[in-house]
Design a protein around this nucleic acid. Structure first.
Lengths: 348, 348
DNA sequence: ATGAAAGCGCTAACAA
DNA sequence: TTGTTAGCGCTTTCAT
């Protein structure tokens, strides 16, 4: 059997509890005994048993990460490694471990979450997405279990949960206004899955900018797609088949933009000459498209980092209510947008 | 306090041990009592405490995933979500949980691994990379702790560890041969970090194909780069500055290829007219480059799935030595390769 | 087929 | 400042 606290205690000629206190670095132990105990630990190659600790002090020092359904390819989005990198970084600082959900469907995920909290497997949970109607959030909320979400709760009544978000409404509005300023009148919107709150917010920002400009939102110009690459491509087909095809597009996600640009180039449409494009996220690879894409940097890493920060805060100080953080965004102008070139042959 | 086995026992009028046996579905309990106990569990909303179980039966039913240093951007490669999806899928089937490493440097990672195994936090470990000289592998090997690696051990003496790999040597050789058949004589090789075994294998395959064709490997045509996007771009600059620039390139990774193509297009070089490119991995996004890239599909998902499979096998049956699995690869011809167009003005 | 009881390795309240 | 001791919630012999 492995070395236990008792072995160390015996060798150091102290009580097990003393050893325990040395591990916790309790100030109520003299430096001298701390030293002897530490030496004993080193000599025996002692390592604390994680499960025993957790059982005894009712805390696991690990946080659960719940990802959206990994069944579809959405999951290959570099967004995820990047949030996780952010979370990971903060977690490591504070010596928390990371436990990953493995469910592929909503039902499986929900069951897993229950296991995590009821089985006391984690001290808190981070949701990497925010759905419009999410059983998981409801559950965690009712159980009063520490959690934070990346995104925002859709339900206004749940404003008091902890979350970190971008101002997606504002971002989408700004981006639309920018295209308007460039002279575009026919601006399409290619959104993600409408079940996600971010999609709704983008949509509203787009709508607001149009209405501020005294323009109407045309249903034909608005497309939603769940799948990242096929989605982008299909959307382009639909949009370019219209009698009055758009001269600019707002795309929900950089990866989708790759699909959009691919299809456009197959149709021999030039970006940005024929169509301007702006998208969201600014994942690493988005500067490598041809041409490099204009996109809104949402600081993915920071989203993860802050979500973890807020969560651990909440775990450590449950009394100090919920917190909300807004991560600033920043439009990165690259080469997929330009002033509308008036088509001389066009008639109204 | 939460509901425990004792509460259930009391309500069902049995001993705690009986409840425990019902959880394990022991055949030595009558169906009748099983029923009553199950009802009691439902009535009380009982969920087994994970830590208590782990402590008592010395097994966690969770496996640790160790990623390479997430400090640099390499980590944003969609390769990772995809392997994890594979691992996750198998793990979920067999009801194993996933625990993630958070270290950013080699030293931190090594320390974490020690914690995982000594602290009995996981039952086994999957390494998502294989370095030429890896302390982690050495450690796990010496401790005789169950683990599997994605890639292969560099050291021939460690052939008896469990791993799942592609035949990267063969893949690189085939790809080189293909370019040779297309008439290319000046074929460059843009590899990843030489610390990784896969890079070495690619390199050897390339070398072998050349020597089989009676050609010499030119040092100038071989470049290694750690960083994915900058790397690709820098490599192109170096290569195209040569007196006799290559007409074809073999690139270690699809994401790097995006960088390569970006830089090429900045130089107004056309792909594949001026330069043919083949790369490796076939991540989802690689079909969305312009033009879509020819690449070797290494079946990332399967790598993860099998690595997990082998590991759990090993955990459950430690006596049945190590296993090795080779995942087949497949070249996906898209549009970044073509026959060499003889330049009429060229002289030798 | 079921119960009693010891123990997994650690923490924490209480004593000293 | 340190030791004693009673758990944490579950599994698992050993009885019955």
């Amino acid at each position: 059997m492995a070395v236990t606290i008792k072995d160390v205690a015996k060798l150091a000629n102290v009580a097990p509890s003393t050893v325990s206190r040395v591990i916790a670095n309790s100030p109520r132990i003299s430096e001298r005994t701390k030293e002897t105990v530490r030496e004993a630990m080193k000599e025996l190659g002692y390592h604390p048993n994680f499960n025993a600790r957790s059982l005894a002090n009712k805390s696991t020092n690990t946080i659960g990460i719940v990802m959206p359904n990994s069944a579809n390819k959405t999951f290959q989005n570099p967004f995820f490694p990047e949030v996780i990198r952010g979370i990971s970084s903060k977690a490591h600082q504070l010596e928390y471990g990371l436990y990953l959900s493995t469910g592929q469907t909503e039902a499986e995920i929900f069951e897993e979450v229950q296991h995590m909290v009821q089985g006391k497997r984690v001290d808190g949970i981070i949701l990497l997405y925010s759905r419009v109607d999410d059983k998981v959030v409801d559950y965690l909320y009712k159980e009063n279990f520490p959690f934070s979400v990346i995104g925002r709760p859709y339900d206004e009544k749940k404003r008091d949960i902890t979350f970190v978000n971008n101002d997606n409404f504002k971002a989408a509005k700004t981006v639309t206004e920018y295209l308007l300023l460039l002279g575009h009148k026919n601006i399409a919107f290619i959104g993600g899955n409408l079940d996600f709150v971010v999609t709704v917010d983008h949509m509203e920002g787009y709508r607001k900018a149009l209405s501020n400009a005294g323009m109407e939102l045309l249903d034909d110009y608005v497309v939603f797609h769940e799948e990242l690459q096929e989605g982008g491509q299909e959307a382009v087909i639909d949009l370019m088949s219209l009698n009055d095809p758009p001269t600019a597009m707002i795309v929900a996600d950089d990866i989708m933009t790759f699909g959009v640009m691919r299809m456009l180039s197959e149709m021999e449409m030039k970006v940005p000459d024929d169509v301007s494009i702006i998208s969201f996220n600014n994942v690493m690879i988005s500067e490598l498209s041809s041409p490099p894409m204009t996109t809104v940097d949402i600081h993915i890493y920071n989203l993860g980092f802050e979500a973890c920060n807020l969560l651990i805060d909440q775990i450590l100080h449950p009394e100090t209510g919920s917190k909300q953080v807004l991560i600033p965004h920043k439009m990165i102008k690259r080469q997929t947008t330009q002033k509308l070139i008036q088509n001389v042959t066009s008639t109204s």
